[in-house]
């Protein structure tokens, strides 16, 4: 038998699959020869990118009409599985929608879930996933011991997305069945926060500020430095919770995972939950007045100093170049 038929829950924005989706497809095609994407919407705009990353087939639910994807997509998946196409493994992004679809499906199929994984391997019929715990200090390897389909969710940037798999995926309709009492939630309006510059999780440079910045107004220093370096500003949860910056700035376990070329942490202590979101940066620069701050344990360049002195000097030096 072996693990061969793999589905990836695909997410898209503005007609293009998300990078996270393409990462999972790339990994999926290295594990099995029969890879399908499962997407909310009609799938036509995304089919070629999905195919080029490994999806020979694109199951598409059609327009969800405002119903939240969790219940709708999982029901459509269940219908396809009941119809005879049973995947061995379904890979989900550890995103809002990925989590919801996987959770609903796990109950419908009575299957366990493995979450927050960053690696997966297949050995015959056995699927093992790896999950970092304690802020990435330890790696836990877990296997599924039950029947397929196995359900696993992966943190963003666990794999590299590579095109070149081939033709557009064949779009196959997978309509949402009647949701009964579970379909009661509908989206009535969508609000998009305006951002300029590169996206936090795609920027080559991230400048992140923490509680050491002192007050909301001073976050301007972080934004100015980010702009000068053509990067994106980020934040620790401490200052998101304090309301200084929106949640979309948060880096860490409950925020975004970033892997930039350079990560500058200003006034951030380096809590384990923050570090899981930025440890993968190629280079880390930390500025903190406390030389015992854990962030220095992973910094390539650490400055023991006051952000209110160092950042303005750095900004002035870069402006004068």
């Amino acid at each position: 038998m072996g693990i061969d038929n793999i589905w990836v829950f695909a997410q898209a924005a503005d007609g293009a699959p998300t990078t996270g989706t393409l990462e999972l497809l790339t990994k999926a095609r290295s594990l099995g020869s029969n890879v399908s994407a499962f997407i909310a919407g009609d799938g036509t705009a995304e089919a070629s990118a999905l195919g080029d990353h490994g999806a020979a087939k694109v199951y598409a639910t059609g327009d969800l009409g405002g119903v939240l994807p969790g219940v709708a997509v999982s029901s459509a998946m269940k219908t396809v599985i009941d119809g005879g196409d049973t995947p061995d493994l379904i890979m989900f992004p550890q995103s809002y929608e990925g989590r919801d679809v996987m959770s609903r499906l796990s109950v419908k199929l009575d299957r366990t879930v493995l979450t927050n994984s960053t690696e997966v391997s297949v050995d015959g019929d056995s699927v093992t996933v790896q999950t970092p715990i304690f802020g990435g200090a330890k790696l836990v390897n877990s296997t599924f011991t039950g029947e397929v389909p196995h359900l696993a969710a992966f943190r963003p940037k666990s794999f590299a997305a590579e095109a070149g798999a081939g033709a557009a995926g064949e779009v196959v309709s997978a309509p949402v069945p009647d949701l009964g009492s579970t379909g009661g939630a509908t989206v009535t309006a969508v609000h998009v926060e305006e951002t300029s510059g590169p996206k936090l999780d795609e920027a080559a440079v991230v400048v992140a500020g923490g509680r050491g910045i002192g007050e909301a107004e001073k976050f301007e220093m972080v934004e100015n430095l980010a702009k000068l370096l053509k990067g994106a500003p980020g934040a620790s949860r401490a200052i998101v919770d304090a309301g200084w910056v929106p949640y979309s700035y948060q880096v860490g376990q409950t925020g975004k995972v970033v892997k930039p070329t350079v990560y500058i942490a200003a006034g951030i202590s380096g809590a384990t939950q923050h570090m899981v979101g930025m440890k993968g940066a190629k280079n880390i620069i930390a500025i903190n007045k406390d030389q015992e701050a854990p962030i220095f344990g992973i910094a390539d360049l650490g400055i023991v100093g006051d952000v209110h002195k160092v950042l303005p000097q750095l900004i002035a030096a870069l402006e004068s170049r």
Binding site: K138, L139, N141, S142, T143, F144, A299, I303, V304, K309
Partner: peptide, 24 residues
């Protein structure tokens, strides 16, 4: 439940680099 932890390993440690005291 149909999952089992098979092993736990230490993650490769990230080496700390150069730490300097700000002298202005």
């Amino acid at each position: 439940w149909a999952q089992q932890i098979v092993s736990v390993e230490d993650a490769p440690a990230r080496e700390a680099g150069e730490i300097i005291e700000d002298d202005g």
